[in-house]
């Protein structure tokens, strides 16, 4: 039965010691331990959050870079295309221009040649006419030296006139 009856002295001692122990440990042990644990946990949490944020930032930076790269590529393509078009146009234009100029030159040349030809022909005609006249004159002078011959000529003209 003594086992089941709590001794009053022991109750008092235990109450005092236990209370003192709680207060002492709270001040010298649990306080620093709990606050350090908390501090560390908060630190870890913050570090994790920071890492996560850095990761996100990296990802966004990467996607930004990719976007920029893509844009640059698109721009380059567009520029190339434009340049190509421009070059083609220039080429085309040059070709057209050349064709035009050439044809004009050809035309001009043709016109000049025609003119020259005409002039030459006229000249030739004039020369021929002059020569003919001279020859004719010489012939006429020689042939129409006699009346008979003149008459023959007149007859021939007449004949030609009749024929026409």
């Amino acid at each position: 039965m003594e086992l089941l009856t709590p001794g009053s002295g022991l109750i008092i001692w235990q109450a005092i010691i236990f209370l003192a122990l709680i207060l002492l440990l709270r001040k010298y042990a649990w306080g620093p331990i709990i606050s350090s644990l908390k501090e560390r946990e908060v630190g870890i949490e913050e570090s994790l959050a920071a890492a996560e944020q850095a990761k996100n930032e990296m990802a966004s930076l990467k996607s930004d870079n990719e976007k920029l790269l893509k844009e640059a590529r698109l721009e380059r393509d567009a520029m190339l295309k434009e340049a190509l078009t421009t070059a083609n146009k220039i080429k085309e234009d040059a070709k057209e221009e050349t064709t035009k100029i050439t044809s004009k030159m050809i035309e001009d040349a043709k016109a000049t040649i025609e003119n020259e030809k005409r002039a030459a022909l006229a000249d030739v005609k004039t020369q021929v006419a002059m020569l003919s006249l001279e020859i004719t004159e010489k012939l006429v002078r020689k042939q129409l030296g006699s009346e008979k011959e003149q008459k023959a000529l007149v007859d021939e003209y007449v004949k030609d006139l009749n024929l026409n």
């Binding site: 086992l3 089941l4 709590p6 235990q14 236990f18």
Partner: peptide, 8 residues
Amino acid sequence: NIAVTLVM
């Protein structure tokens, strides 16, 4: 001891 456990 029942006194000790009782106090706690």
